[in-house]
C-alpha cells in the first residue's frame, strides 16, 4: 500500500533535487556543446554555468533563482494501490510545493494574473499544474517535477500540410532567433517541438518533449529521429550562442513529439528548456520504497500508442 504521506515525502524531495542538482544527461550534453564552441565569450558563459552547477550541488542551493513554475507529471500504474485517492495525491503535491518553497527555498513566483496577489508558497488557482497519465501492468506511481521559467522561448503556429518540412524549419528558426536574441530563453537548451494534435495538445506535447526526455534520447520513429537531428543541426547553425552572443551553441538536443491532428492542418509548437534544465522523478513502489532518478521515462510505448487496444 502506498500511503499519502509517502507521496508527499517523495514530492517534497524531488522539488529539492530538481532545484539544486543538474541532471547528468544535461550536464554531459552541455559539456559536449562546450567542446565545440569556438567563440571566447560564448565559451566563457558555458564554463561559468558549469561552475554554477557545481556550486549549487556543493552548497545545496538552487542553481537558478528563477525556480520557475513548479509543476508535476504523474504516471500511475494500473495496479498501484494508494490510500488517499486521487485528490489525496493532489493535496500532497500542493503541500509539498508549499513546504519546499519555504525550505529549499524556491522563489514564490506564483501570483494571480490580474491582482498580482500571492500566497508566498507557489500554490494558487490551477497551480501547481498536475498532468496525469497511466501505465498498464505496473504497481508503482512515478512523480516527476519540472522547474521551468515561463516567460520566453515558447511559441505556437498553425501551419498547413503544404508548408511541409520547410514550414517547420522556418518556424523553428523564427522562434529560436527571436527568443535567442540577448539570450532571453537562456540557451543552449533542450528544444522540444510539438507537432499535431489540437492547439492545446500541440503545446502540451512540445513542452513535454523539451522537459521530459533526456539528452540523447531519440523518437522511436526513425524518420522523426532523423528530423530531430537535422533540426538540432539547423539550430546550432544560426551562429548564435548563449546570451545571444556569436557562437554555435543553441540546442543541446532537440526532441519531437507528435499527435494525430486535423486533416487540414499541421500545428507546431516550439519550447526551449534552459541552461538550468531542472527535472527530477521519484518512483514509489508498491511496498512504499522510493527510488529517485532524473529520467522521467514519460513517453512509454503505451503513452505513444497508435491503436485502439493495447498489446505489449
Amino acid at each position: 500500500m502506498i500511503t499519502n504521506n509517502i507521496i508527499e515525502d517523495a514530492s517534497y524531495e524531488i522539488m529539492r533535487r530538481a532545484a539544486i542538482d543538474i541532471p547528468e544527461d544535461y550536464l554531459n550534453g552541455i559539456k559536449s556543446v562546450a567542446k565545440k564552441e569556438k567563440e571566447q565569450l560564448s565559451g566563457f558563459v558555458i564554463e561559468s554555468m558549469i561552475e554554477n552547477y557545481e556550486a549549487a550541488t556543493e552548497d545545496r542551493r538552487p542553481m537558478c533563482a528563477d525556480t520557475g513554475l513548479p509543476r508535476y507529471y504523474i504516471k500511475v500504474g494500473d495496479k498501484a494501490v494508494f490510500d488517499g485517492g486521487f485528490t489525496g495525491i493532489e493535496r500532497a503535491l500542493r503541500s509539498a510545493t508549499a513546504r519546499a518553497t519555504h525550505d529549499v527555498p524556491l522563489r514564490p513566483n506564483r501570483v494571480h494574473p490580474l491582482w498580482r496577489t500571492e500566497h508566498n508558497n507557489n500554490v494558487g488557482i490551477n497551480s501547481p499544474e498536475v498532468e496525469w497519465s497511466f501505465e498498464p501492468d505496473a504497481n508503482w506511481i512515478d512523480i516527476t517535477t519540472v522547474h521551468k521559467g515561463g516567460l520566453f522561448g515558447t511559441d505556437y503556429r498553425m501551419l498547413f500540410p503544404g508548408d511541409g518540412i520547410d514550414g517547420i524549419k522556418r518556424f523553428l528558426l523564427d522562434t529560436l532567433i527571436s527568443f535567442g536574441k540577448r539570450g532571453l530563453c537562456c540557451q543552449p537548451a533542450i528544444v522540444g517541438i510539438g507537432l499535431g494534435g489540437s492547439k492545446d495538445t500541440c503545446m502540451q506535447l512540445g513542452k513535454q518533449a523539451a522537459c521530459l526526455r533526456v539528452v540523447g534520447d531519440r523518437n522511436p520513429d526513425p524518420k522523426i529521429a532523423e528530423l530531430e537531428l537535422e533540426l538540432m543541426e539547423l539550430g546550432n547553425s544560426i551562429g548564435m550562442g548563449p546570451m545571444g552572443f556569436v557562437g554555435s551553441s543553441m540546442a543541446v538536443d532537440l526532441h519531437i513529439e507528435v499527435g494525430y491532428t486535423h486533416t487540414g492542418g499541421m500545428p507546431i509548437s516550439v519550447h526551449t528548456f534552459c541552461l538550468s534544465s531542472r527535472r527530477a522523478t521519484a518512483r514509489i513502489h508498491a511496498d512504499g520504497g522510493i527510488e529517485y532518478r532524473t529520467d522521467p521515462k514519460w513517453f512509454t510505448p503505451y503513452h505513444r500508442r497508435d491503436t485502439i487496444g493495447w498489446e505489449e
Binding site: S48, Y53, A55, D59, P62, C64, L275
Partner: peptide, 14 residues
C-alpha cells in the same frame, strides 16, 4: 552589467 548565462544563481547566492 549583465549576469552570465543567465542562471548562475548559486554562484551569485554565494
Amino acid at each position: 552589467l549583465t549576469t552570465v548565462g543567465y542562471g548562475t544563481g548559486a554562484l551569485l547566492g554565494r
